[in-house]
C-alpha cells in the first residue's frame, strides 16, 4: 500500500460498497423504506412515483424556455426579470425559490457551478450530469474556469468577459445562449433540438 499522510476523509467518497457490492447509502435507504412500509407509512408505488417525478424534468423543458425566449422578445424580457414566473408560464412546475437567467452576448459568456454541493435547477433540467457534481469541476470551475472550458472544447477569446456564477445559496441559474445566426430559418421545435444541456450550464456556447 502507498503511504498516506492525510486523513482518508479528504478522498471523494462517491460510492462506498461493502464486500458483496452493496452501496452503503442504499443499504440504509432500503432498511428505512422497509420499516416505513411495514408501519404502513409508505408504499412501493409512492416510492416509484417520487422517482418518476424526479426524473421527468430534463433538457426538453430547458430547451422550450430558451427557444421561446429567442422567438418572443416580450417573453425574453419577462424571463430576464423574473425567471421563475416566466418558466411557470410554460406550465413547468418550478420548485426552486428563484430562477436567475443569465444571458450570453457577443462579449459575455456565463458559466454555472455549485462549489459547495450540486445545486442545479432540477425542477426544470432534472438531475445534473455526474461531472457537475464532481469535486474537480466544483473547484476548478471557479479557480481556472477558462481551462475547464477549454477541456469542454470551448476556447474563449481573451477579450470575452467570462462570468462564473456560484449557486451556493438559494438562487438557481440558467444560461440563455446566443441564438443561432440563422434563427429565422428554424421552427421553434427545430431550435429546441439544437439546444444542449451543456449550453444551459455554459460549458458550451455556440448553438448551430
Amino acid at each position: 500500500m502507498m503511504p498516506h499522510d492525510h486523513d482518508h476523509g479528504e478522498h471523494e467518497a462517491l460510492i462506498i460498497e461493502d464486500e458483496a457490492g452493496n452501496i452503503e447509502a442504499k443499504i440504509v435507504v432500503d432498511a428505512l423504506q422497509q420499516v416505513l412500509a411495514q408501519k404502513g407509512l409508505l408504499t412501493a408505488h409512492e416510492v416509484t412515483a417520487a422517482i418518476a417525478k424526479l426524473e421527468s424534468p430534463g433538457l426538453h423543458l430547458g430547451a422550450q424556455i430558451i427557444a421561446k425566449a429567442w422567438t418572443d422578445l416580450d417573453y425574453k424580457a419577462r424571463l430576464m426579470s423574473d425567471g421563475r414566473a416566466a418558466v411557470q408560464e410554460l406550465d413547468i412546475p418550478v420548485t426552486e425559490a428563484r430562477i436567475i437567467v443569465v444571458e450570453n452576448t457577443p462579449r459575455v459568456h456565463n458559466l454555472i457551478t455549485c462549489t459547495l454541493c450540486s445545486c442545479y435547477p432540477r425542477s426544470i433540467l432534472g438531475q445534473p450530469p455526474s461531472w457537475y457534481i464532481s469535486k474537480a469541476y466544483r473547484a476548478r470551475s471557479v479557480r481556472e474556469p477558462r481551462a475547464v472550458l477549454k477541456e469542454f472544447g470551448l476556447d474563449l477569446s481573451l477579450d470575452m468577459k467570462l462570468v462564473v456564477h456560484d449557486s451556493n445559496a438559494d438562487m438557481r441559474y440558467l444560461v440563455l445562449p446566443e441564438p443561432p445566426s440563422d434563427l429565422a430559418n428554424h421552427t421553434r421545435l427545430e431550435l429546441e433540438a439544437m439546444i444542449s444541456r451543456d449550453h444551459l450550464i455554459g460549458v458550451a456556447r455556440d448553438v448551430t
Binding site: V142, D159, K161, V163, V164, H165, S167, A169, M171
Partner: peptide, 26 residues
C-alpha cells in the same frame, strides 16, 4: 440575500487572468 460580483484577478494569484472576468456568488 445578495448576489455579489468579484474580479477573478482579486480571487486568485494566477498570471494571465483577463481583468474583465468576474465571479458572482450569493
Amino acid at each position: 440575500l445578495y448576489r455579489v460580483a468579484f474580479a477573478q484577478t482579486q480571487l486568485w494569484p494566477d498570471d494571465g487572468i483577463p481583468s474583465q472576468d468576474t465571479l458572482v456568488i450569493e
